[in-house]
Every structure is written in structure tokens, then in C-alpha cells.
Amino acid sequence: MSANAAAEWPQGIYDTLMTAGVRQVAYVPDAGHARLIDLCRANPVIRSVALTTEEEGVAMLAGTWLAGQRGVLLMQSSGVGNCINMLGMIEECRFPLLMLVTMRGEWGEFNPWQVPMGEATAGVLETCSVIVKKADDPARVVETVQAGARLAYDAYRSVAVLISQRVLGTKSFVK
């Protein structure tokens, strides 16, 4: 892995979303997504919607697809727990859904309150029929998101890409 890959994966995800034609970005902020959120908000072609809870974004992106557009949901792993009932609708209606989840409570976590949901994140998603792809190497984050985007938009699946704290590093959490 090069130093560049570690620094540039948010730009790589942004480029992937633009290539895929994403027009709505829903998010509850996370430090790990800060740069990607800034990139999206700076683009007037994209509607970037801040949510009060992640569940709102699951419902919103169902509407996005009904309206003929593609969307993406950005969140921290603690927010996965807020999505569960609405993911049932995604499965029943087979809505494409791409979630990019930055992990907490997982790799070198210092906050014990983050650990239970971090440990549960992948299992909860898989129980809700969401396809989980883990990215724990900075050099492979972008290709994992590319693969997830194809699974979602072209194969009509709900997909979560879990971006490890190993990728996010400590720098993402302090200015």
C-alpha cells in the first residue's frame, strides 16, 4: 500500500459514485466520512441530505430509486442498528441499496461503549439480507466500493461496504 492510497481513498470513492451516476447522498456524519461528505456537498449536481437518524436514509433511498435516481447512504457502524426494520422493506421490495459504513468498536477502539455495536454490525446486516463486503486495506477500499456499487445498481442488491478502523486510522479522528 502506498501513502497515497491511504490519503486518497475518499476521493476514489467520490469518483466511483460519480461514475455510477449517484445523484442523492444521505448521511449521518462520521469523522471517517468527513472528506467524502465535503466532496459531495461541494458538487451541486448531487443532493446531499443530512439525516437525523440512519433509518431515514434507508427509506429515502427507496424513494430515490422509485424516482429513477441512484443514491448512497453514508454512516458509522453504530448507525446500522438504527436501520433494521427499514431494511425489511428494502428486502421485500428488492430496492438497490448501497451503504458505506465506517467502523467503530472494531480495530484498536478506545471507547468501550462503541464495541458492542461494532462487533454486531456485520452480523446484523447479514441477518437482514444485506450483502457485506469488508475493506480493511486502504489500497482496496475503492475497488470494494466499485464492486459494491455494481452489485447494488446493476444486480439490484442491498450492499454494505464496511470500512475498517484500520483504514481510517487515528488521523481521521483529530484535526
Binding site: 442523492q24 436514509g57 427507496a62 422509485l66
Partner: peptide, 12 residues
């Protein structure tokens, strides 16, 4: 989620 589905449609 009813109003948020409607929001996604309205924006699109």
C-alpha cells in the same frame, strides 16, 4: 419511513 420515501421521490 413514509415521509422519507416521499422526500427521496420529491428530490428525484
Amino acid at each position: 419511513g413514509t415521509c422519507m420515501i416521499a422526500l427521496g421521490i420529491a428530490l428525484g
